[in-house]
Design a protein around this nucleic acid. Sequence first.
DNA 1: CTGTTAGCGCTTTCAT
DNA 2: ATGAAAGCGCTAACAG
Lengths: 333, 333
Amino acid sequence: MNIYDIAKLAGVSYATVSRVINNKDDVKQETRERVQKILDEHGYLPNSFARGLSMSGMKLIGILLIDVRNLHHSNTAFHIETEFAKFGYTSFIAGCGLDNTKQEEYLRVMASRNVDGLVLIGSRFQNEETRKNIKKYFSGKPVVIANGYLDLPNVCGIVDEERKAVAGVVDLLVSRGHRNIAFVNDYVTFSAQEKEAGFMEGIERNNILYNENNIRHIKTDIDVSIVESEKLFSLNRDITAAIYSEDLMAVGGVKACGRLNLKIPDDISIIGFNNSIYSDVSTPRISTIDNKRYDLGAKCTDALYAMLKGKKVEPVVKIIPELIHKETTNLIE
Amino acid sequence: MNIYDIAKLAGVSYATVSRVINNKDDVKQETRERVQKILDEHGYLPNSFARGLSMSGMKLIGILLIDVRNLHHSNTAFHIETEFAKFGYTSFIAGCGLDNTKQEEYLRVMASRNVDGLVLIGSRFQNEETRKNIKKYFSGKPVVIANGYLDLPNVCGIVDEERKAVAGVVDLLVSRGHRNIAFVNDYVTFSAQEKEAGFMEGIERNNILYNENNIRHIKTDIDVSIVESEKLFSLNRDITAAIYSEDLMAVGGVKACGRLNLKIPDDISIIGFNNSIYSDVSTPRISTIDNKRYDLGAKCTDALYAMLKGKKVEPVVKIIPELIHKETTNLIE
DNA sequence: CTGTTAGCGCTTTCAT
DNA sequence: ATGAAAGCGCTAACAG
């Protein structure tokens, strides 16, 4: 069923049908109704390809995320989708995985689908390769990066101030008497490096002793974290607080304390990152640095929408994370 | 940059450019190289709309999910996407929310994007409304429903035998001496109703006593579950085992036991559903009924791919869930 | 091996 | 208010 068929059935030209479909106002009410009726009866569906061909903007936005198993990222993606749906946009979501070659491929797919705007979710997009690809395929089109930034005129980055946040948490711990603080990190992503830089910043400006045994680099996995946390806490018995770069790792820390019979938070404080549901699923609930993922999605939407409307936006929008006190710390004054 | 521009630059007709782009073999090597070079230099991108218009199948599949915050569903979606990418398909993922009107809207969007096949994820798609919409917009095109089924010639349902699974767990509990078993359920979804039917089946065929205090209907939320579980366990002190329709609810059960000083699993056994990461994040780790979500994605992919290739498939593919013994039960012989 | 031609289904002038 | 015609960028059949 296309407009020609409908036109024939309605006894009008296909141009008129097109007008009815697009709610143009220069159609006689009577004709409109007759055509609309036939449209409805036959469950007519416009072909988006044909439409996309003749129209300039198809009200389509592309959302690309690195790791689809990352709850954080997929939530942000769907949040953005929902918001844009309210403005009449449809979203094209895809997960391109960690593989760098796939990244270019998906960027191409997005570009060839003529998306009006693009959202990239994940700090891993902050790299030279991606910069080049954006320049190649998306110059002129608005691009927003969630949790990352690239210096390009059409790119807006929403960045969590994770470094500052971790440094601040170290300050707080020190002010509460902690002198031996551990940091367990994923280390692979840009975001992880930022967090670690923040940890070092905190350690140094507070003149705290530390050695390589205070930092551990591990995979984001509960069981790995249990094993490594056990090692960490047994090797370095003076540790009174551990910061983990992800809640899921902190869960491993909590379980390790259980095995070593360390009391939380009296013997040791555990701090996670993300304020994810994992921190609440854990018993005890894990105190965690909230990087406000909900804000992230909202800010991405705002920025992209503004750019789509041709408005200028700040190239970098900052989000300030905040420590949420739950049951694995007793830091409140 | 379209093929006309490229053709002009290369001094050939645009048909030749099209041939190069599509790797047709009837182009002289020399010409091919010359055209390819210009294509590369200019970062040429085919316009998918134009392509979609002239080609029959665009190798596009649509994936629609109800609740995007459901880890289970989004994982399945992305798994399917990844698999189909290997076959050269791109996927169009969208979350349509619980709202029924949105469901039709999204089905329309999918149809108008001319997807070659459709995957619906979630038992909520198993309803008359959706059946009508599929008939209206997708008759003739292959449709797969993950965790649900609709009686239509072009629809294949992958269903978890959740009812049977829960009944089986009741059998097992009874065989280990449990006589007072509780069931906590979400109740809204078709899937939830199936689970409850399974519980009742188990109760009845084992001739176990039970009253309305053995069943509770609550929202899928940790804190709600804590409160309700506390009530449940205090009201009915003889309960020795509780089955929850979602791991997240079971987490509430575990925490409630902590508050009531009930020892797990000696005083009470807790059983969750999904074998999700929540069951491992919890301390103690929750014994859970694994409905094999990984299988679900794989089976959806297989079925859809087969249908796409024009093969006949079984209208219903069954997945048999299995109880995974972790730390909240001691049922093993 | 390459060019010409005719659509794919729709939107959008431009006439009438 | 409605119809005719052009064109969006591409593929594919048909000539040469």
